[in-house]
């Protein structure tokens, strides 16, 4: 009973209410976008955008200082602008194919961090000011922050779920999408923009350094459990919500970093799923997986492969 009343107290705390709502939205939205990134083998894109967003935070800080207003006021808008620009830039590089996406990501990583540290110094701030963006500060979510989170999360979920068929087609087989007449460039740009928005929204919850984990790890969990794209996305979203809300609740009682707790929790769920899967999953094809296909060669009687052996490659 004690635990229940404690949880009841937590839910009446306005700070906690805002934090929980933000965690819920981010937990649901980030894995939806992450599914497309994993499908395109761009799992590290979120990290690249996160680093660029740090430069955006510092740039917003610099503008705020120059205008003489509270320096934090422009931090999040700065992050949004920089993240969107960075994500579109990397999409352009990927499209041109001059530099490999891998190299472009690496350059974003270094440039983002170096730019952020450089600009925050110019703005008269310290590296300490960047810490809350690097590692998250969900307990200090204000009403304005929450409003922005709700709006951006709505955009993320609308695009990510509403356009799922078209985005799946483009991510699965881009040439076929071109041959279908789908606006491939526009759809790719949408994935990039939505990834950037996810990074800036999740920045408050888990911090820029751990944003990508929230987009990718729930997808890794879901892949252990299902073979379908739609179910992977749905499962990942549920996992995201559960780890975000649970992680946040833990930090209400234990004074630990919410972002780190959420990510460690997600990885723990992944470890459990990976360990349990071989025990519960239907045993691989126990019989010939292609019984409808005749053998290509004539086999003497008794020479057939035992049916429990994996014959297909």
């Amino acid at each position: 009973m004690n635990l229940l009343s404690e949880l009841g107290w937590m839910l009446t705390d306005p700070f906690m209410q805002r934090a929980l709502l933000a965690a819920l939205l981010v937990g649901a939205g980030a894995p939806v976008v992450g599914t497309y990134l994993v499908q395109r083998r761009l799992s590290l894109l979120g990290d690249g955008i996160g680093h660029i967003a740090l430069t955006g935070v510092a740039l917003g800080w610099l503008i705020g200082a120059a205008l003489g207003v509270a320096p934090e006021a422009f931090a999040v808008p700065g992050a949004v602008v920089a993240a969107v620009a960075g994500a579109l830039a990397i999409e352009l590089v990927r499209r041109r194919g001059r530099t490999s996406g891998d190299l472009a990501l690496a350059i974003m990583f270094y440039g983002g961090i170096a730019g952020g540290v450089l600009l925050i110094g110019l703005a008269g701030g310290s590296n300490g000011n960047l810490m809350q963006y690097l590692f998250g500060s969900i307990s200090t979510v204000s009403g304005t922050d929450l409003a922005l989170t709700v709006v951006l999360s709505a955009v993320i979920l609308l695009v990510g779920i509403g356009l799922r068929a078209a985005l799946f087609s483009v991510s699965h087989d881009e040439e076929f999408a071109v041959a279908s007449g789908l606006p491939v460039w526009l759809l790719n740009a949408m994935v990039a923009v939505v990834s950037a928005l996810t990074v800036t929204v999740a920045m408050r919850v888990v911090g820029l350094l751990l944003v990508s984990a929230l987009m990718i790890v729930p997808v890794a969990v879901a892949q252990q459990l299902t073979h379908s794209f739609a179910r992977t996305m749905g499962t990942a979203s549920v996992v995201g919500v559960v780890v975000c809300v649970t992680g946040l609740t833990i930090t209400y009682f234990q004074d630990v970093s919410p972002g780190a707790t959420i990510v460690v929790l997600a990885i723990a769920v992944y470890a459990v799923a990976a360990a349990v899967r071989p025990l519960v999953a239907r045993r691989g094809p126990a019989t010939d997986p292609h019984p409808d296909l005749p053998d290509d060669v004539e086999l003497p009687p008794g020479a057939r492969a035992r049916t429990d052996q994996e014959v297909c490659t």
Binding site: L163, S228, F229
Partner: peptide
């Protein structure tokens, strides 16, 4: 296409053939 990171079912792959520039 090169194997993608997230598995998909035959039905999901075939369904993408129903989309076009006019139908997203």
């Amino acid at each position: 296409g090169a194997r993608t990171g997230v598995p998909s079912t035959a039905a999901e792959v075939v369904a993408s053939g129903l989309l076009s520039g006019r139908r997203w």
